[in-house]
């Protein structure tokens, strides 16, 4: 028999290293040939930080994002951007890029005002050019301006570091004022179908609402939520590296099951954007929080479906069959 159930989970995640660890990202921006080069060591592991910082720089500097290049991470050519972990890159490197872009924009205004013999309010930037509002034909591209600046023996470039402080919790009580830079929240409600004969659980639908401040790139955020949730489903239902007496019994993908396309549920996602956090444009991090709610939501839904609560993960078909058998007595 197939039984359906619904389950909910609400989670929080304090992001950044926090706890008083030094946590920062350094970024620089310069002009190069036909492009704008952002130097960062931020690792894009697939989540899309390079896309996010391209968007931020293009937005602030009002240039075509196709003109933006990002240097390859290289310990000898890029400065420390901190790790891609702790859900920190959009917040930390995003803020650093925003600051660097704002500083560069300030310099563009400064040097252009010398060229145009005018003051900042009379200048307009658009599509990588700057001009006086009353003389739009007579414009300078950023690259032309950079050339003029370099002829003066100066440089049109910027560097910024984003380095917010946190507090180390007291060793005896864990208490402190400012442990993490910010918290992301998320609620998920899932619907599952439990096959009481085979013990198999199918996650049918996942409804998500995430409090993320602002989505710099909503489709990427959806991608994080979908990918994270399916990892959480793996944690809830199948993934288990069995280590017996120190020896892994299933060191391959035949023995260690991960979700396939067959396990992918339907997603409905709502992004709550109050633009009220300290990340760029009010954003908070989403990478880790996106995977956290799935396991409890699925466990709660299984309880709703068959009346059995599981305290140990993963909730495999064998465990479900056994529990249902035990329940009869």
């Amino acid at each position: 028999m197939k039984k359906r159930g619904q389950g909910m989970a609400t989670i929080m995640f304090g992001f950044g290293y926090g706890e008083g660890f030094p946590d920062h990202s350094i970024v620089s921006i310069e002009f190069e040939d036909e492009s704008l080069l952002i130097r960062t060591a931020a690792a894009d592991v697939g989540q899309g930080v390079l896309t996010v910082i391209t968007q931020i720089a293009a937005e602030i500097l009002k240039i075509d994002p196709d003109l933006i290049k990002i240097s390859q991470g290289d310990t000898h050519l890029t400065k420390n951007s901190g790790s891609t972990s702790a859900t920190r890159q959009t917040f930390f490197t995003g803020n650093a890029v925003k600051q660097a872009a704002e500083e560069l924009l300030g310099k563009i205004y400064h040097y252009a005002s010398l060229e145009f013999r005018s003051n900042h309010p009379e200048l307009i930037v658009k599509d990588g050019h700057i001009f006086r509002h009353d003389d739009p034909e007579n414009k300078l591209s950023y690259w032309q301006l950079a050339e003029i600046v370099s002829q003066k023996g100066e440089e049109l470039k910027s560097e910024a570091s984003f380095f917010p402080a946190t507090d180390a919790p007291d060793a005896a009580t864990g208490q402190a004022d400012n442990v993490y830079v910010a918290y992301t929240f998320m609620t998920q409600k899932v619907e599952v179908e439990v096959d009481t004969v085979t013990g198999e659980v199918e996650v049918i639908e996942v409804n998500t609402a995430m409090d993320l401040g602002k989505a710099i790139n909503p489709r990427n955020v959806e991608g994080q939520i979908e990918g994270g949730t399916v990892q959480g489903i793996g944690m809830a239902l199948m993934e288990d590296q069995v280590i017996q007496n120190g020896i892994t019994l299933n060191p391959d993908l035949t023995g260690y099951l991960v979700p396939t396309a067959m396990d992918s549920p339907h997603f409905k996602t709502s992004l709550i954007e109050n633009e009220d956090a300290d990340g760029p444009f009010g954003a908070k991090g989403v990478g880790e929080p996106s995977m956290i709610a799935a396991a409890p939501a699925v466990a709660n839904a299984i309880h709703d479906a068959i009346g059995v609560r599981f305290y140990e993960l993963p909730i495999t078909p064998d465990k479900i069959k056994k529990a249902l058998k035990d329940k009869i007595f």
Binding site: T10, A176, N178, V179, Y180, K189, S270, I272
Partner: peptide, 22 residues
């Protein structure tokens, strides 16, 4: 940890939103 949350706490909204969605 005793950290007082002063900014960007919309967790209740996420619960209400999911209820509205479902």
């Amino acid at each position: 940890n005793g950290q007082i949350l002063t900014r960007s706490v919309n967790v209740r909204k996420t619960i209400k939103e999911v209820l509205a969605m479902t």
